[in-house]
């Protein structure tokens, strides 16, 4: 019993402190938290500093006075509000589209009555799609979108974001569906429920956590997407990451508004992952298991 207490691997002490000692563990946690938190602290304070403070050297570590001037400037000058709306619309539609057609495809691959061979072919294809870098399709997509006059439209960005996230969603949801006991569907089948009925009434209600995980991961990825936003937008559909990158000039002194924009961009995803942390972490973990 005493042994168990001394080396309890489920205890708050963590596994590391069991063999490296408590000081090592505490030092590691304190150090890693400092390195993670200080830049975030710096971002938030710079967003709230007076102009003379964020330009000052030596830097003002703890501002004596705070202001929302940078936020006001942001909304006044840079067409920021319309960019915020654009990013939100693109992200919301992409998320819905991905979850809808991704989870259904995943269900067929996990449990659908189609041949084993077909399942393997589609599964491997989606896996390969998941792996390859977006940049390899960037130039042809640009050429085609230009020919179709779809540059600078929300539509083109929704299409491309859905395209990147679909393979990830399919693999993730396959993992969630495969965990369900097969007896569930067998009982549904005995009751005479067809494929659609089984999916919508039996399976979907109990895979809600999986769907939420998939939705959060898509939301975050689309919200932050930069490469295609910068390629496919000229003026009207600049998303927030493009706006933030636009703050970088040779002068590079607009730190206040830049920080304010980053803070505003960070708030929604922080809230989302904070309130749905369990589903978010489970999604990450499942993604790694399904590789």
């Amino acid at each position: 019993m005493s042994l168990k207490r001394k080396y309890d691997f489920t205890s708050p002490h963590g596994i590391l402190s069991n063999f490296a000692g408590r000081p090592v563990k505490v030092a590691l946690i304190v150090l890693s938290m400092t390195v993670v938190l200080f830049p975030l602290y710096w971002l938030v304070t710079n967003a709230l500093k007076l102009e003379r403070d964020y330009l000052a050297y030596p830097p003002v570590l703890i501002p004596k006075e705070i202001t929302f001037e940078s936020f006001v400037e942001l909304f006044e000058k840079n067409a920021f509000a319309s960019s915020l709306a654009t990013t939100l619309i693109i992200t919301a539609v992409t998320t819905l589209l991905c979850v809808a057609i991704g989870s259904t495809a995943a269900y067929t691959l996990a449990r659908g009555p189609i041949g084993r061979k077909a399942k393997n072919i589609f599964g491997v294809w989606f896996l390969v799609q998941k792996m390859y870098p977006a940049i390899v399709t960037a130039i042809p997509v640009f050429i085609v979108m230009r020919a179709l006059r779809l540059i600078d439209t929300r539509f083109s960005l929704i299409i491309m974001n859905t395209s990147f996230n679909l393979p990830m969603i399919i693999w993730l949801m396959m993992g969630f569906f495969e965990q369900l006991p097969i007896s569930l569907e067998e009982s549904g089948m005995l009751d005479g429920a067809g494929f659609y009925k089984r999916f919508f009434y039996l399976i979907l209600p109990i895979t809600k956590p999986g769907l939420i995980s998939a939705a959060i991961l898509t939301f975050v990825a689309t919200w932050n997407e930069f490469l295609f936003s910068v390629i496919l937008s000229i003026k009207r559909t600049k998303t927030l990451p493009v706006i933030i990158a636009g703050f970088i000039t040779d002068r590079g002194l607009d730190w206040g508004p830049m920080a304010a924009a980053s803070v505003l961009m960070l708030v929604p995803v922080v809230l989302l992952t904070f309130f749905l942390q369990k589903d978010f972490v489970q999604g990450l973990a499942m993604g790694a298991v399904k590789g």
């Binding site: 830049p39 710096w42 971002l43 710079n46 975050v220 919200w223 932050n224 930069f226 927030l240 990451p241 933030i244 990158a245 703050f247 970088i248 590079g252 730190w255 830049m258 920080a259 924009a261 980053s262 961009m265 960070l266 995803v269 922080v270 992952t273």
Partner: peptide, 13 residues
């Protein structure tokens, strides 16, 4: 979950 663009500009600053 921070946009890589935002992380990059933050560290650039």
């Amino acid at each position: 979950i921070m946009a890589p663009v935002a992380a990059g500009t933050l560290w650039r600053m």
